[in-house]
Design a protein around this nucleic acid. Structure first.
Lengths: 240, 240
DNA sequence: GTCAAGAAAAATATCGATTTTCCATGGCAA
DNA sequence: TTGCCATGGAAAATCGATATTTTTCTTGAC
């Protein structure tokens, strides 16, 4: 579906420089704010407020919000406006369940269909990721943004040999929601657990075209993220 | 996600009677027209044209169209408006593949979790469906609409014991696309093949809580729809 | 003091006009 | 002919104002 545009996006939603539509810019900014937790779950998205904040027209805001419905990042009901999608542990578990199902399938198909192009994408992404992960061993906070981007790239590369658009589309929506949960719950913005060796193992299995193994490792990888969130929720206060 | 509102929808998109928003009415009508093939795949959706046809404002149309993006029933690109989602045999195969994956999973979960409520929903839906299917044995054309609605109800009931919202949401999107393909390609609007015994078999397996069998039958059921479409595309006429 | 009805305020949804972008067409030069 | 740019019309995107609905607040009866 639509790509994440982190950071370097200009501050000007009317940015004609970008070639993009104003709606698309507002859409991207809203999405970014929701994924980062700047806009809290279930908080109301008042059109007038957003309109003046972004300096655009109300119908532009509404259209951007409507498009976010596609990603399930906002909800709307009857005559009472838009809200940021709620979060819950149950919801996160559902997301993880779906990710296990879809990522496993996508990786398997990638291994079955992937050509040389695909393979080199995976190698390149794995390399880029491992470099930043090595740097992070020293807890360089500044690299966390890099890590998130490269982690995404790596996982995108893994499934990019799969040619089922629907699968990739659904998968990406779920991935985005996962990111939101991690960012919201892990307030410190660190890299979760020891993910490095897991990535390495997945990488090796995929390149060796061991489908069963790759599938299993992928599922485990996702399952562990649930454990992390559960621990976090259990050990901490619940949002106001 | 959103439900299909076939037929009985008033002709007045400004229908305040319905309690619904104008946007929602336009959304529903557009969706219906797309699913029925009234709006052909890849045809342009000119805002001005739709605006005057429905007697509403342009931004209202735009917002309705934006919401259809969520269902992948329309596409939009940069500065060149909206189009009805394209169709292709490859796309239909991808949809079928995903449906096999998701419906199988959903049925399995329903069988695992479904309570008495669920079971009786299934029984009721199966009964209603079988009645109309019996009537159709005599080729009563008038009942085709009924059949489509009850077929949907039956399949909805089967998975309604599953409590994973994401799974059900994705599943419904895919189901709608399947319907579109069938309606577009089967110009005569008949019931495809001998579907009655398949439904019966699925029903029995589900009620007997035979998860493996139910899953297999579900997958076969979907696989056969691919055969039907393929035959149709190949130019062959499939038995009515 | 509680509750309900109604007025006032706030927010949503809808409208129609304006601005911007795209695209086909045709003149003109190489 | 072929390629290139200007130009006009069509369509898309954006705007800001209006109408409608929901929510909040006030007041008064019980």
């Amino acid at each position: 579906m639509t790509l994440i545009q982190n950071g370097q996006n200009s501050d000007d939603p009317t940015g004609k420089a970008s070639g993009k539509t104003i709606i698309e810019n507002v859409f991207a900014r809203l999405r970014s704010e929701i994924l980062n937790g700047v806009l809290a779950p279930e908080s109301r998205l008042r059109v007038e407020e957003l309109r003046s904040r972004f300096g655009v027209a109300s119908s532009t805001v509404r259209e951007a919000l409507s498009r976010l419905l596609a990603d399930n990042l906002v909800t709307t009901e009857g005559q009472r406006g838009f809200k940021v999608a709620p979060v819950s542990l149950a919801d996160f578990r559902e997301i993880a369940t779906m990710r296990m199902l879809l990522e496993a399938k996508a990786v398997r198909e990638s291994i079955a269909n992937g050509d040389d192009e695909w393979e080199s994408r995976v190698v390149a992404a794995a390399h880029r990721l491992s470099k930043v992960e090595a740097a992070l061993a020293g807890n360089e906070w500044s690299a966390v943004n890099d890590w998130e981007a490269r982690n995404r790239e790596f996982h995108n590369a893994l499934v990019s040999g799969c040619d089922n658009r629907w699968l990739l589309n659904f998968r990406e929506i779920l991935y985005n929601h996962s990111v939101r949960y991690l960012r919201i719950s892990l307030t410190e913005r660190t890299i979760p657990r020891d993910v490095r060796s897991e990535h390495q193992a997945i990488f090796e299995a995929v390149i060796a075209r061991k489908a069963d193994l790759a599938e299993r490792l992928t599922i485990d990888h996702i399952a562990k993220s649930v454990t992390v969130i559960e621990a976090r929720v259990a050990g901490l206060k619940v949002a106001s």
